[in-house]
Amino acid sequence: MLRVVSGVSLVAQRGQVTALLGANGAGKTTTLECAQGLQKRSGGDISLLGRDPATAGAELRSRVGVMLQDGGLPPSSRPVPLLRHVAGLYAQPWPVDDLIERLGIGAFSRTTVRRLSGGQKQRLALAAALIGRPEVLFLDEPSAGLDPQSRQLVFDLISELRDAGMGIILTTHLMDDAQRLADYVYIIDGGRNVAEGTVQELLQRSPVVETGADHIRTLEFEAVPGLDFAGVLPDGIAVAETRAGSYCVTGSLTPGHLAALAGWWEAHGIMPASMSLQARSLEDVFLDISGKDIR
């Protein structure tokens, strides 16, 4: 038996966006599909609104919305009849016209699904997932294929749904999505969750530098290869030459550190070709935790 996911443990709360973050093939979709009852699991426990999704019936499914990674919409169908059909499966659906307006589906309402752009399909799939006014919403890679305007529209709607009390569980391999949307993040790697926390908690966590500082930043600059910065910066500030001539300084950087570095450059006659200072991103944390190897 192929074991894809083993050792994932997560809790998602109502009124929160919970993100499962991981590289392609990390086990995000499998985890989600087990929680949706789409895949049989060989072990472990899953409780969705107090029920086991593997054995629950129509009552539970009516309270849960699912947007699949590949949409799952019939290619020959048109958006409005499709949404009306899915709405008919619920006792009290979200009014179809309202949802069509909210997600800008009217602009392509007469186009068959197979002719829709990737972003249009995503918006339609989101509408189909929301039509039952779910209490729990599963979104598998919700921003795949979205143009910037659609992305903003979808993100605003997700935030609004969260504020209305919906529990939203999404998977993404886009760190920016998670950073913008998620209240709580689980990083999944090799079928296990390897880290979890709020975005802020994860940003403060660093296997490179042990520090309790609030604001981890990275300073990247390019100069001549092979420089030795030993003793220039205090303990807790790490300097690494990531590739020949490219340096990355990570830690709770202060103006004093920058001054020390600039002084050292001046003393050695070095002027970096480029440099950038940025807050540490979730992507940095993710790469630290899951490694940089291509999967």
Partner: peptide, 9 residues
């Protein structure tokens, strides 16, 4: 595949 030890909630 299958999931083992998954506890989503």
């Amino acid at each position: 595949g299958t999931a083992s030890g998954a506890a989503g909630a």
